[in-house]
């Protein structure tokens, strides 16, 4: 019965997302049409004359009135057709599907890295609030979030690749000598492991480290802060006092009881950070020549590639909505109170 309430809750969350998605479809359409520059002139190439530009405008359907263009865009969209990128000539949906795993792998890896550093930092800070440990953590994570990611990225490349030679060249997902592993998940590291190809696995991992570090550094702050806050709350709560009074070891109290109870808001924060990262890694992808959807979007924007920009934004929006939904679901399932209130 509780599940019934919860699934209804999930459905209503989905319904809430629909107007936002519709808004996005309209806004991106208008925004891309407002981009200056004439894609027809651009794609007619050098030495084109007015006639050949008009020809191309007609081919691209750009000579029709805007409402007609919008209508045909929405019709295609409803059939799952995101249109065709005029710059790569490929269907947008296909390009996004090819590139999405690259972005997701980088973002997830960065999130993992970030969480592995930030959560212990937050716990350490929470155990002795206002101590030097707390202050040092605060300084560190704030410094991380104060660095522009493209600057960090370039600096890391310079130090670890150019000067020290520890990192492989920043050439995307794999060194040239390796072939991409047979596709299962689209994540090179996981696919390589499934294929039991450890050399490729290491190579893919090595490529991931610098961009992931760049992103992770930027996202330590929210995770560490949330961990600290919720740990402090948990450590100050009744049941911890009871546990202390009953003589449990400090280690056990902190890591088993307090930590477990503090994790729920942290998981929510992780979700938010993930969607933020996915949007923010545009610049990191550019620095590391990472073939993700972010760099795809930048390229498309510069050449006024309508379909590609619209497809990218829409895909991201859908991803965000699904992610938020997922977080809500996890929250709902994990927290017994939510169901009752709904």
């Amino acid at each position: 019965m509780a599940l019934g309430v919860k699934s209804r809750l999930i459905l209503s969350r989905l319904a809430q997302a629909l107007p936002a998605l519709a808004g996005i479809v309209v806004v991106t359409f208008i925004l891309t049409r407002a981009l200056p520059g004439d894609p027809a002139a651009y794609f007619a190439g050098p030495a084109a004359d007015a006639r050949s530009i008009a020809q191309i405008r007609e081919q691209l359907g750009l000579d029709r009135p805007l409402p007609v263009q919008f209508l045909s865009y929405v019709t295609d969209l409803l059939q799952g057709d995101l249109g065709r990128s005029i710059s790569t000539g490929q269907p947008v949906a296909e390009a996004l599907m090819q590139r999405l795993p690259a972005s997701l792998e980088l973002t997830l890896f960065a999130l993992l890295l970030s969480a592995l550093i930030a959560i212990p930092l937050g716990v350490a800070a929470a155990r002795r609030p206002d101590s030097w440990v707390d202050q040092a953590c605060r300084l560190l994570v704030t410094a991380g979030v104060s660095l522009p990611t493209f600057f960090t990225g370039l600096l890391l490349v310079y130090v670890f690749y150019f000067i020290l030679g520890w990192a492989p060249p920043p050439l995307g997902r794999l060194d040239l000598i390796y072939l991409s592993p047979p596709q299962v998940t689209g994540f090179f590291t996981i696919d390589a492991l499934l294929d039991r190809d450890f050399a490729t696995f290491r190579a893919a991992l090595a490529q991931l480290v610098l961009p992931a570090m760049t992103l992770a550094l930027f996202t330590l702050a929210p995770i560490a802060r949330m961990t600290r806050a919720s740990m402090i709350q948990a450590l100050g709560s009744e049941f911890i006092r009871t546990a202390r009074a009953s003589g449990l070891s400090e280690r056990r109290i902190v890591y088993t009881y307090a930590f477990r109870n503090a994790m729920l808001p942290v998981v929510t924060t992780l979700g938010m950070v993930f969607s933020f990262m996915l949007g923010a890694n545009v610049l990191v992808e550019k620095v590391f020549a990472w073939p993700g959807i972010g760099s795809f979007a930048v390229e498309a924007l510069v050449v006024s590639d309508y379909a590609a920009v619209q497809g990218f934004v829409l895909a991201m929006a859908v991803l965000f909505v699904l992610l938020n939904l997922l977080i809500d679901v996890v929250y709902t399932l994990a927290d017994p109170r939510v169901g009752m209130e709904g």
């Binding site: 520890w166 000598i177 492991l193 480290v209």
Partner: peptide, 24 residues
Amino acid sequence: FLKGVGIAALSSGVPLASIPSAWA
């Protein structure tokens, strides 16, 4: 598979050093 992921997470900082700078 899960073991592999665990290893990936643990050794994330390490494998860099062993990549030869002049890659084949």
